[in-house]
Nucleic acid binder design. Structure first.
Lengths: 254, 254
DNA sequence: TGAATAGTGTCTATCAGACATTATGTC
DNA sequence: GACATAATGTCTGATAGACACTATTCA
């Protein structure tokens, strides 16, 4: 416990403090087979060897931004690069986690990030992982994740659920052109609740800048029939106004 | 630029990376004379000696949580402690800032926090600051703050403006009992826009759990006349439903 | 007495959600 | 032909915002 004198000293010589490591972890979400999936890696070494964890790693401090570090870690486990898809992934900072003891080796502050990705190829483990897989979030939430990653995942899911209410980021889960039904499937998967198709349709089209028509029509209709849907692409809005609010969640309000 | 081998090594010996320091900075907001103020300190030593900066300091890694570090730094500059007021301050994490070169001395990742405080006594400089003052945010935004603190402050202000839309945290700027007019003054100060008194009044009372009546009435009315207002305290809602949306900001939507 | 304020009432346009309807595809 | 789906229409209740109005207090 440094006193005032040591505080002053530390201002000039911060390395006097015990060492800290800074890592990034990524909650990468995508839609696979209509379900929300999160990217997990199986740890190849201790601690928590063999356990599933969020992809992440140490920041190359001074040589990259936190966002670049997160993108790098994500690229390592997905096989994407700037040209092949990574540019279309939405990546934002989620929050930092630094409770004492969260890593048994040494003090580690992890800057967690949240990624929304369109359907990606199968994951491939990076250098320090034994395995990498897209896992349905229900399974991931029930699993025993390493470190405090269960909490980070929960925070990321809540952020995602909230974010698509007032931003058009649900489109980040889809290809460049999509139908209103596909967009609705995103909301249903992220919120875990069914939505009324007709009302959703009218609502999306009524929000300025959310989507814009391509003029084209989907090649085929759904597997179970119906007319071929019109195609849309993301519009230029950065905020949805009015927002698409989640169905009642009275319970979480108090 | 470590290759795969070095990555693997680093997983077991993370101290192989160049040293990183972790700090907390605090955007502490309060209302003084009807205006939104932010707590600033004048730096006592290099770098940026003499410049105004957000209060902050190094995290005692492994010995405190990030939130505890932020509370400690805030206490040092305000003279508050757990008994005297600090408990009533709302403190939340804002985000982390780690761009290369943001601190000329070494790589520093700062975990910024945001605090909402009721009107506090005059600030007093902590050990490593030459001065500490509550500054109207207009002045603070116009000033040349140290490091990347101008951006952190801007992010904190935007977070505050957004947060009082859908949470009851505007009450954190007030004493335990307050009038609807005082609550409206908070919104007007944070949003920087005048609100319609009558509509605001009805709206606040219609949101379940936002405020609850104490049954009492203010001792005196406003300095310019009018009936004595009823007193309220914060209710048990954690989210406002429906939310109090900011007046039109069409410009920022696209 | 005049002016500012607290609190309530009223009206209108908008919106969310329930429900119905028509047209168009697949199986 | 049965059935699911795309897209649109209609209705109701809730809400935001504009405006009006009364009562109360200070200067």
């Amino acid at each position: 416990m440094p006193g005032d004198d040591e505080d002053l000293l530390a201002d000039y010589d911060p390395t006097a403090y015990p060492p800290v490591a800074v890592t990034v972890d990524v909650v990468a979400l995508t839609l696979r087979n209509g379900a929300l999936n999160v990217l997990l890696v199986r740890r190849g070494g201790p601690p928590y060897q063999g356990a599933w964890a969020l992809p992440g790693g140490f920041v190359q401090a001074g040589a990259e931004t936190l966002g670049q570090a997160a993108a790098r870690e994500l690229a390592e486990e997905t096989g994407l690069d700037e040209e092949r898809g990574l540019a279309r992934v939405h990546l934002e900072q989620l929050g930092s986690y630094g409770d004492p003891g969260r890593d048994p080796r040494l003090a580690v502050v992890s800057v967690a990030h949240l990624a929304f990705a369109p359907d990606l190829p199968e994951a491939r483990p990076g250098s320090d992982a034994a395995d990498a897989r897209w896992v349905p979030v229900d399974e991931a939430v029930a699993a025993d994740l390493a470190f405090d990653h269960a909490r980070i995942l929960a925070d990321g899911l809540e952020r995602a659920r909230s974010k698509i209410e007032y931003t058009p980021l649900a489109t980040a889960f889809l290809r460049k052109e999509f139908t209103i039904s596909e967009l609705r499937a995103v909301y249903e998967a992220v919120w875990g609740a069914g939505l009324h198709a007709g009302n959703f349709h009218r609502k999306v089209l009524s929000v300025p800048g959310f989507v814009e028509s391509t003029g084209a029509t989907a090649e085929r209709s759904g597997s179970r029939g119906g007319p071929r849907a019109r195609l849309y692409r993301a519009g230029d809005a950065r905020l949805l106004h009015p927002a698409l609010l989640r169905p009642d969640r009275e319970d979480s309000v108090r």
